[in-house]
Write a protein that binds this DNA or RNA. Structure first.
Lengths: 126, 126
DNA sequence: TGGATATGTGAACAGCTCTTCAGATGTTCC
DNA sequence: GGAACATCTGAAGAGCTGTTCACATATCCA
């Protein structure tokens, strides 16, 4: 099998071909990986989980996540660039909210998993 | 408000308190972020998506993901350490499979999102 | 206007991640 | 046994990421 002009060793060629066919386009995989990357930092993740219930201002997001206000601003800029959150400005305050249904779904799945695990395996906390 | 003994400025103290209360335990947030981190590399993500349909050997996973066999092995070791995949050894071959229902769920959501976006907004490909 | 407040930004640094390379381990077949 | 094969591993390096610091911008209020 050839990929990018380089010969590659394969065991089950038919299977590999069918998997490659079903595989989403390169750009879509990269975009998806990017989204997961945005959720892969604990403090940023805490910010997003906090936003599940509605908008919050920068300093409250900093407090909730444990970030400095500057670091929170940097993080929010990143999330804004990827359209994961959006801003509403009111005077000198900036209120951020979750603005991506896909990310919200992923967060919901993750939170549900945590709560389910807690409920079913409370002994894990010992 | 005090967090870790440091005074932190807050705007909506009641709201922050309630969000903090609902927030999953620190360790759970970190674990969840770790899982998202495992999904945040395009080549590793492609490997995992390939495994959605069933087990594959290392070299086929390398071929599908575009990794060298050595790099694939490193990636699989990481996934194994986090119990995301498990191995079945047959002679000198090693067959990996998805072994984490939560990760499978996240992957399903992500793939469904990609396919839905493709179906609804095919113009994005132009 | 001037000072306090809330957020935003660039540069710089430390730490982490991914990949490669060289070689180790363990298996099959002659 | 020895050669070919499939996978695994540690060390090392390049590049990326998160945080901090110092300062910029913009708003509010006296």
């Amino acid at each position: 099998m050839d990929i990018d002009g380089c010969a590659v060793r394969v065991v089950d060629a038919a299977r590999v071909a069918s998997v490659c066919e079903r595989m989403p386009a390169d750009r879509d995989v990269v975009d998806t990986a990017d989204v997961f990357g945005l959720l892969s930092d604990p403090k940023r993740l805490r910010m997003l989980m906090a936003l599940l219930d509605g908008e919050l201002c920068v300093c409250d997001l900093a407090a909730v996540s444990g970030l400095s206000e500057s670091a929170a601003s940097h993080a929010l800029r990143l999330l804004r660039a990827h359209r994961v959150v959006s801003v509403r400005r009111a005077g000198r305050m900036a209120y951020y909210r979750l603005d991506d249904a896909h990310v919200r779904m992923l967060l919901d799945v993750a939170v549900a998993h945590i709560e389910h695990t807690e409920a079913v395996h409370p002994e894990r906390e010992l």
